[in-house]
Every structure is written in C-alpha cells, then in structure tokens.
Amino acid sequence: MTAVEFLMLTKGPLFQAALAVFALGVLVRLVEILALGRAHNYAAPRGSAALGGLRTMYKRFEPDPGTFKAAPFDVVVGMVWHIGFIVALLLFIPHVELIKSTFGIAWPALPNPVVDAITAITILGLLAALVHRLAHPVKRFLSTPEDYLIWGVTFLVMITGYLAYHRLINPYPLALGIHILAAEIFLVVLPFTKLTHMFTAFVARYYNGATFGRKGVQS
C-alpha cells in the first residue's frame, strides 16, 4: 500500500466507519443513561434544581480554591492539557475545514503557530499527567488498564498531529494518514471507555448541580 492509498483509506472508508461507531456509540451511551431516569422527588425544594444543574455544568470548570491548594499539579496540568486538546481539536484550521464539511458549521480558527505551541504544551501536559498517574499513590491505586489505554489513544492523536504538522514523518500523506488513523482509534475507543466523560460529565454535572440546587446549594 502506498502512502497516498493509506491516506485515502484513512480519510475515506475508515473515517466514515469510525465516525459511525462514534456517533452510534456515544448516543447509545447517552440515551441509555438518560433512559434510566430518576425517581420522583417528593421533598419540597429550597431552590431551583434545573438552574443549579445548569450552573454546575459550567462551574466545575473552575476548581475550588481548596482543591487547587490540595492538588495544584492536578488542577493546572489537567486544565492545561484539556484546554490544549480542545483548542487543537476545534481551532486548528484543517480541523475547522473538516468540521465545516461534516456538519456544515464553521467558526474562526487560530493561527497555526498558536495551535502549534498549544499542541506542544498539551503533549508535555499529557506526559506530565502520565508520570503523575504512575507516581501518585491515589492515582496509581485507582488506575486500571483502561485508564492507561485512554491516555494512550489521546496522546497518540496529539503526537501524530504534531509530527504531521511539522512534517517529521515522510512522506506527508503517511504522516497525515497516521494522524487521521489515530483520531479514528480515538473515536472508536471513545464510546466504549471512560472517554465518554467528554459528554457524560455534563450529564453528571447537571444531576449533581440539580441535587444540590434543589437544596439551595450551588455545587
């Protein structure tokens, strides 16, 4: 197989297949969660559950000062690479073009050097996160093979993207194909692993915020 054939395979049928697995899988996960439902709550509310839920969906982006003091590394590194990942995903020009062609919507992108720098930082952040996971007693204790798997597929997407952008793998169609393949692995693995937290975390935050909000506490 030539590099261009590989690129066309990853851009064409594999991309379609990965996207199908992703869309199907994520919706199965989300719908199966929501379909479970909740028991009716008979207690008189003190505050609005819905408002509390919506606020918490956003609020958990801001770590509370106590947590920051207790685990500054987790908070900083975690935020840095999550933001970096999302910026690289959504604000890199080739990705914007891809999203435009797939969903028909587009938004302004960032200049390439900015995305490049953010990507480099994100890769370092991911490496730091892995070292921390291996070294920190609680993280090491909790970690399962799945945790390392999802780290791996995330890292793979970032590092192959970086290599492709800098044309460090030759020929370029091979570099791009590897990056696209990594993204497809990410998409396929996502619905079957805790990578679903990309979506379910907002559901979780809503329920958390709604439970507390009902009691008049902003969680």
Partner: peptide, 11 residues
C-alpha cells in the same frame, strides 16, 4: 449511570 460513566480516576 452518568457518574460512573464519567469517572476518569483523577483521584
């Protein structure tokens, strides 16, 4: 279900 789906073992 949403909670268990979301935990990434950050500790």
């Amino acid at each position: 279900a949403s909670f268990f789906s979301s935990c990434v073992h950050c500790g």
